[in-house]
């Protein structure tokens, strides 16, 4: 479903992604780990189509389509979703209202008629329950004055509403208390199906106890330098990143 080959990207003239390769198939869960500053969020933003990152080489296809040709909103309409590491506060725009607009836009792109108001309401109630988010949060301006954990939960709520086929969760587990982590992970597990896929960017093995990944990758210095199964995550938890850094710091650019 997602095919990334030798992806290179830079921001403000600084190269950050130095040739990333990754293939994600339907039904899979991939975890991406790696030290701070290694380029994980950049990778997620480039996939989502953030304009201030320039793609300098490589390819990115999603369901056979060249994503690099599409704008961020078109990628979302194709079924991509990014849960932000730092969700943005948007005063004056309620989550519910903009989701209504977003869903209408996405449906129109896919050739579906708009959702009836009552169906939207029903869906909203369902999803609120699924991620155990309080209705008053979703009625408020997007993330404005939300606690760190509430923002993350709101990301998962939006994901549930938009039903993407590929969701990238950038450190959604950071800042969550233990209960919230269980709820968020439970939400992901309930949404998981043979038809969709997830990329979880995380620093903690803990999340992977709740959501079992099929693959674990280490992104370091702009490249995926190691891939494995969940054993790799356990190994990283034990040993830290020094051994990775030693092994790969000399790699020619």
């Amino acid at each position: 479903m997602l095919e990334i080959k030798d992806l290179k990207a830079s921001v403000d003239g600084k190269q950050i992604l130095k040739g990333v390769n990754l293939t994600v198939n339907k039904g899979e869960v991939h975890a991406i780990m790696g030290p701070n500053g290694s380029g994980k969020s950049t990778f997620a933003s480039v996939i989502a189509g953030r304009e201030d990152y320039s793609v300098d080489g490589g390819s990115l296809t999603f369901n056979g389509k060249d994503m690099l040709e599409l704008s961020a909103d078109e990628r979302a309409k194709e079924g991509l979703f990014l849960a932000f590491q730092y969700p943005v506060e948007i005063p004056g725009v309620s989550t519910i209202n903009f989701l209504k607009t977003a869903i209408a836009e996405i449906r129109q792109y896919r050739g579906f008629p708009p959702l009836e108001a009552k169906d939207f309401l029903k869906m909203m109630k369902e999803k609120q329950k699924l991620v155990e988010i309080e209705a008053n949060l979703t009625g408020r301006a997007v993330n404005e004055g939300f606690s760190g954990g509430e923002k993350k939960r709101n990301e998962i709520f939006q994901m549930a509403m938009l039903e993407p086929s590929l969701a990238i969760l950038d450190e959604t587990d950071s800042g969550l208390d233990i209960d919230a982590l269980r709820i968020v992970a439970g939400g992901v597990n309930k949404l998981r199906s043979g038809e969709n896929a997830f990329i979880l960017i995380t620093h903690y093995q803990r999340l992977l106890e709740y959501i079992t990944p099929d693959f674990v990758h280490v992104l370091y210095n702009g490249r995926i330098v190691k891939s494995g199964t969940r054993e790799l995550a356990l190994e990283l938890e034990r040993k830290g990143y020094d051994w990775i850094k030693e092994e790969f710091s000399e790699m020619p650019v």
Binding site: D73, L82, F98, L99, I103
Partner: peptide, 20 residues
């Protein structure tokens, strides 16, 4: 970018922010 990543095209995203 946040709004665009949820499926609103740029013009619509701008409009939503300005209206707010």
């Amino acid at each position: 970018f946040y709004l665009q990543s949820r499926g609103l095209n740029k013009q619509l995203a701008k409009k939503v922010l300005l209206q707010a």
